[in-house]
Structure formats: C-alpha cells, structure tokens
Amino acid sequence: MQQDVPGDAPQDLSHAGSVVDKAIEYMMDQNIAPISIASALLGGALGLLARSMSDQAVAAVLRNALASVERGELAEAREPPARKA
C-alpha cells in the first residue's frame, strides 16, 4: 500500500473524491440518514488510516481536521453560494 508524504496531495485524490461523492449520492438516494453515512465514512477512513499510518500521524490528521472546523471552514459548506449580480 502506498504511503503518501505528509503535505503532498496524491495524484489520484480527485478521482478518490469523485468516487466518495458518488457513494454519498447513492446512499442519500437510498434514504440513509446523513449521520449514518458520515459515521460509516469516518469509520472507514479511520480504519484505512490506521492500516497505513502511525497513531501519531492519524492524530495529526485528526488535529488538522479539528482545526479546520474551529476556523469555520465547514460553515462555508452550510451557506448557500453567493449569487452573481
């Protein structure tokens, strides 16, 4: 399994993101609750990270995610896009 260098985005990140987006869309179409979808994705992601990174590296990823939340970066996802004049 390939281990990515911290700070470098792998070339296939866009493809992986598209696959995850389609999986989310599919689960939403199946009327699966958003919290269930998110919990399953988070659990799967943590399991994958645990198999490919040290505990310290996983903790750093989680701290980075928490810092993004605390900076309000997720609030942008809840706000409707600004309309162009």
Rank of each mutant, 00 (worst) to 15 (best):
Gln2Gly: 07
Gln3Ala: 12
Asp4Thr: 15
Asp4Cys: 10
Asp4Trp: 12
Val5Met: 08
Gly7Tyr: 01
Ala9Lys: 07
Ala9Ile: 06
Pro10Gly: 11
Gln11Gly: 08
Asp12Trp: 03
Asp12Glu: 09
Leu13Phe: 02
Leu13Lys: 05
Leu13Cys: 00
Ser14Asn: 09
Ser14Gly: 09
His15Gln: 14
His15Cys: 04
Ala16Phe: 01
Ala16His: 01
Ala16Lys: 06
Gly17Gln: 00
Gly17Met: 01
Gly17Phe: 00
Ser18Cys: 03
Ser18Val: 02
Ser18Ile: 04
Ser18Arg: 06
Val19Gln: 02
Val19Ile: 06
Val20Phe: 01
Val20Pro: 01
Asp21Ser: 08
Lys22Gln: 13
Ala23His: 05
Ile24Arg: 04
Glu25Lys: 10
Glu25Gln: 07
Tyr26Glu: 05
Tyr26Asp: 08
Met27Ser: 07
Met28Asn: 03
Gln30Phe: 05
Ile32Leu: 11
Ile32Asp: 05
Ala33Arg: 10
Ile35His: 15
Ile35Asp: 14
Ser36Cys: 11
Ser36Ile: 14
Ser36Val: 14
Ile37Phe: 03
Ile37Arg: 06
Ala38Met: 13
Ala40Thr: 15
Leu41His: 07
Leu41Asn: 02
Leu41Arg: 07
Leu42Arg: 04
Leu42Thr: 12
Gly43Pro: 00
Gly43Asp: 09
Gly44Thr: 03
Gly44Lys: 01
Ala45Tyr: 08
Ala45Asp: 02
Ala45Arg: 06
Leu46Tyr: 07
Gly47Val: 02
Gly47Ser: 03
Leu48Ile: 07
Leu48Arg: 06
Leu49His: 05
Leu49Gln: 13
Leu49Gly: 05
Ala50Arg: 05
Ala50Val: 06
Arg51Thr: 13
Ser52Met: 05
Met53Phe: 09
Met53Lys: 09
Met53Glu: 08
Asp55Leu: 07
Asp55Pro: 00
Gln56Lys: 04
Gln56Ser: 00
Val58His: 03
Val61His: 09
Arg63Leu: 11
Arg63Asn: 13
Asn64Phe: 10
Asn64His: 09
Asn64Cys: 13
Ala65His: 10
Leu66Thr: 14
Ala67Val: 08
Val69Glu: 15
Val69Met: 13
Glu70Asp: 15
Arg71His: 11
Gly72Ile: 15
Glu73Asp: 14
Ala77Asn: 09
Arg78Gly: 06
Arg78Ala: 14
Arg78Phe: 11
Arg78Trp: 10
Glu79Phe: 03
Pro80Tyr: 02
Pro81Tyr: 07
Pro81Met: 12
Ala82Glu: 15
Lys84His: 11
Lys84Val: 15
